[in-house]
Simulated assay, not measured.
Amino acid sequence: MLTSLVVGVLLMNVFAAALVVARAPVYGTRLYRPMLLNLVLSAAPLVVLGLAVVVVLPLLVVGTPRPLVWAVGVVLGLVWLLLLPNSGYLITELNLNHRREGERVPEWYDVLLVLVLAMSGVLTTVLNVFLVVLVALVVGSEDSAAPLDSTPARVLEGVLLLLVAFGIYLGRHVRLNSWDVKHPHHLVRKVVDHLRSPGAVGNAIGFTLLGALFFGLMYLVMVGPVVRGLVDLEALRATISS
């Protein structure tokens, strides 16, 4: 079940990239590079998770002091969290602003393109959150799947999705990027100045809550059956063993 989820998300991203790249040679127009850049940024959190596995596990195997392992894990976790809104940000590409007058690209192609692009971002966001919840709650608990269907899991998922939605808002409306964290004073000033403008706080709260709800529903649809299946399978094995 988990393998199907991961493979499905990866294939959706490949499909989106293929549509973006094929658009130029097939219809004799320019390559719309911002879409490819956003796809790369969308995949970045998964790359960081993979890097965390490659780096942290060997440290544990060779007996590295736990404080150092925790420090490396926290740093990679913060980098992952900063990059995570880039995945969900693809929902803001659900428009046809990239179309230019005189292009021979059929409208149906571009509608499908932006839909696949947005869905790849949604699926990648959901997979990122699930993998982190999986590592945070299952690893070290005797590989039991039960924590995935618990209140701590719901709380962690909710907090992460709220942060994702708020990050998307900052990216779209305040025009912030993940790397702007290198200049915290400028970042904070830009956010504060934006929120002081009329109606900005209400818009930020509304988008964050509704965006998190949207991602939460998608999470329920995608991950809910996987968690239920893992928990039921574990219960069945326990029944057979006893």
Rank of each mutant, 00 (worst) to 15 (best):
W80Q: 01
L210F: 13
N177T: 11
L81F: 06
A22L: 13
D193L: 14
R104Q: 13
V79F: 02
V226E: 07
D193E: 14
P25Y: 03
L51H: 00
V56R: 06
V227P: 11
N86V: 01
G199S: 05
V14M: 13
S178T: 13
V223R: 12
T124I: 05
S242K: 12
E107R: 10
P67H: 00
L59C: 03
L170N: 10
G171H: 00
L220K: 12
A71T: 13
V62Y: 10
Y109V: 06
G63K: 10
L83M: 07
L76T: 10
L5T: 13
P225W: 06
R33V: 15
L115W: 04
P198G: 08
N177L: 07
R189F: 04
L176W: 06
V126F: 04
G216R: 06
V126P: 02
W80T: 00
V159G: 04
Y109I: 04
T124R: 05
E107L: 15
L41W: 12
Y169A: 12
T64Y: 05
W179Q: 02
R33F: 14
S241K: 13
G158W: 03
H98T: 10
T239L: 15
V74F: 12
S242I: 13
A136W: 01
S120K: 03
Y32Q: 05
Y89I: 08
L233N: 15
A17T: 12
D232W: 05
L137C: 07
L82Y: 09
M12P: 03
L209W: 07
T125Y: 02
L37C: 00
L49F: 09
A200E: 13
L49I: 12
D180P: 08
I91L: 09
R99V: 11
G202K: 12
L19H: 03
A44L: 15
D180F: 06
A153F: 08
T92R: 11
H185G: 03
L76R: 10
